[in-house]
Structures are given as C-alpha cells and as structure tokens.
Simulated assay, not measured.
Amino acid sequence: MIKPSVLLFALLMSAPAFYRLLGDEIDLIQVLIRFLVAVPIAAVLMAGLRFILAGYRKAEEEPPATVMTPEPYDSPEPGKST
C-alpha cells in the first residue's frame, strides 16, 4: 500500500506540471503520466529517508536481565591454613 507521505511527495514533485496545466500549456494526460512516474520515484526516495532515519530512533527500553549480586568471599588470610 502506498503511504500518504509518498503521494504527497509525488504531488510536490509533479507540481510544476499541474501549474502548466492551469496555463493550458500541456494536456491532462501528460500531467497524469508525470504524476504516475513521480510516485515510484517518491516511494524509493522516502524509503531511503526512512532507512537513514531509522538508526536515530529511540530504542525501546528492554527490561534488565537477571541482576547478579556479589556475595562476600571468605578467603583465608595469607599464611594461615583453614
């Protein structure tokens, strides 16, 4: 499914064609073709942007693993036997 952000970006990329349509410089078919060409290009560019920005997202905090508590070790004093 195409995301709305991709369609908006494709619309922005093909905005000059829509502007030229208002001045009757090009046909509606050419404008629609330019928009349809802009959609996959916008999808690739937005996917690349999402891939780059994914590394900067805040990682979800994981629950701490089992906590090890230190226990005292009774070592014999040097020179004394047990």
Rank of each mutant, 00 (worst) to 15 (best):
A65G: 12
V44S: 08
Y19R: 10
Y19D: 05
P16K: 11
L32R: 01
D74C: 05
K80Y: 09
A47C: 07
V44T: 05
L22Y: 06
A10F: 00
P78W: 06
A65Q: 13
A59M: 05
F51L: 15
A17K: 06
K58A: 01
A38F: 00
P70S: 07
D24E: 12
A15K: 10
Q30W: 02
G55W: 01
E62M: 10
A54R: 12
E77I: 07
G55L: 11
L36Y: 07
M46L: 12
F9R: 15
P72H: 01
E25D: 10
R57S: 02
V31K: 00
D74A: 13
Q30T: 14
T82I: 10
L53E: 03
F35H: 04
M13L: 13
L21Y: 08
V37Y: 01
R50I: 12
F9Y: 08
M13H: 03
I33R: 13
P64M: 09
P40I: 05
E61T: 07
P16E: 00
E77G: 08
M46Q: 09
K80N: 14
G23E: 07
G48K: 11
G48A: 11
P16H: 03
A54G: 02
A59P: 03
E60D: 07
R57C: 02
E60M: 09
D27Y: 08
P70N: 06
S5G: 03
E62D: 14
P4Y: 00
V31T: 11
P72D: 01
F51K: 12
L53G: 02
F9T: 12
P16R: 09
D74E: 11
G48C: 01
A65E: 08
D24L: 09
E61H: 08
I29Q: 10
M46H: 09
E61R: 15
F18R: 14
M68E: 11
L45N: 03
T66I: 13
L36G: 14
Y19K: 14
L49T: 03
L53F: 14
A47Q: 12
L8I: 11
V6M: 05
I33Q: 05
Y73I: 12
S14Y: 02
S14K: 00
A43S: 10
L49M: 11
F9G: 09
L12R: 07
F51S: 14
S14I: 00
L45A: 03
P70M: 15
Q30A: 05
A47E: 03
T66K: 15
F9S: 06
F18L: 15
L12A: 09
R20I: 02
D74V: 11
L36I: 13
G79T: 06
D24C: 13
L7H: 04
I2N: 10
I26Y: 01
A54H: 01
D27F: 13
